[in-house]
Structure formats: C-alpha cells, structure tokens
Computed example of a mutant assay.
Amino acid sequence: MDDLTGFQRDLLYVIAAADQPSGQDIKDEIETYYSTEINHGRLYPNLDTLVNKDLVEKGELDRRTNYYALADEGDEAIEERREWESQYVDL
C-alpha cells in the first residue's frame, strides 16, 4: 500500500466498506468525504490502477455498469496499513 496515493488508498477503503459498489457509488461516497466533485477522469484511472495492482476486482453488473470488490490482496494491504498506523496512533 506504500506505493498508492492517498486518493487510491481512500478508494480502497470505500470499496472495502461496500458490497460490490458501482463506480458511481464509489464516486458518490468519495465526493461526500472530499466535499468536492470528483470527475471521471480522476476516478476511473485510479480504480483501474487498483485493479491492475490486484487489490480490487472488477466485474460487470450489466452492459453499462461495473462493480468493484476488494481482492484478498486488498484486504491484506488494508490490514497491514492498519497495523502500521497502530504503532503511531493509539485508538
């Protein structure tokens, strides 16, 4: 996860918290967090990066809509990140 941008890491967490969200679902959630509009030119290339790094799986809901799901490697990356953070932040 150390090679991801903060935005990509945030996308990973949003995907982890949902059940096969569509790109639009992810966009809506991340826009709420960032309090700004996220354009498709920013969102989808970053989602593709997560897919290419085998952190996220991409599938088809229908001909027009894809879904995203956390891959095992993505789950492991989040767990490793949380362990690393816990060294510095006591929750």
Score class of each variant (00 low, 15 high):
1 M>L: 09
4 L>K: 12
5 T>H: 02
6 G>L: 14
6 G>D: 13
7 F>A: 12
7 F>Y: 15
8 Q>N: 10
9 R>N: 11
9 R>Q: 07
10 D>T: 15
10 D>P: 08
11 L>D: 04
12 L>F: 05
12 L>S: 04
14 V>R: 04
14 V>Y: 00
16 A>H: 03
16 A>V: 10
17 A>S: 13
17 A>T: 15
18 A>T: 12
18 A>N: 10
19 D>F: 15
20 Q>M: 11
21 P>F: 05
21 P>M: 09
22 S>Y: 00
22 S>G: 11
23 G>H: 01
23 G>I: 07
23 G>N: 05
24 Q>E: 13
26 I>D: 02
27 K>Q: 11
29 E>G: 06
29 E>V: 08
30 I>S: 04
31 E>G: 05
31 E>V: 06
32 T>P: 05
33 Y>C: 09
34 Y>V: 12
34 Y>D: 07
35 S>H: 12
35 S>K: 15
35 S>N: 13
36 T>E: 14
36 T>G: 15
36 T>W: 09
37 E>K: 14
37 E>N: 09
37 E>Q: 12
37 E>T: 14
40 H>Y: 07
41 G>P: 04
42 R>A: 10
43 L>D: 03
43 L>Q: 04
44 Y>A: 05
45 P>M: 02
46 N>G: 07
47 L>M: 01
47 L>P: 00
50 L>R: 03
50 L>G: 02
50 L>Q: 03
50 L>S: 01
50 L>E: 04
50 L>C: 00
52 N>G: 15
53 K>H: 01
53 K>A: 05
56 V>H: 00
56 V>P: 04
57 E>Y: 08
58 K>F: 06
59 G>M: 12
59 G>L: 08
59 G>H: 01
60 E>T: 12
62 D>F: 12
64 R>P: 07
64 R>Y: 09
65 T>L: 09
66 N>T: 09
66 N>W: 06
66 N>E: 06
67 Y>D: 03
68 Y>C: 01
68 Y>I: 01
69 A>N: 03
69 A>F: 04
70 L>Y: 00
70 L>K: 00
72 D>C: 08
73 E>T: 13
73 E>I: 07
73 E>L: 14
73 E>C: 14
74 G>Y: 02
76 E>W: 11
76 E>P: 06
76 E>L: 13
77 A>P: 02
78 I>D: 01
81 R>T: 00
84 W>L: 11
84 W>Q: 08
84 W>M: 10
85 E>D: 03
85 E>Q: 12
86 S>F: 06
87 Q>I: 13
91 L>M: 15
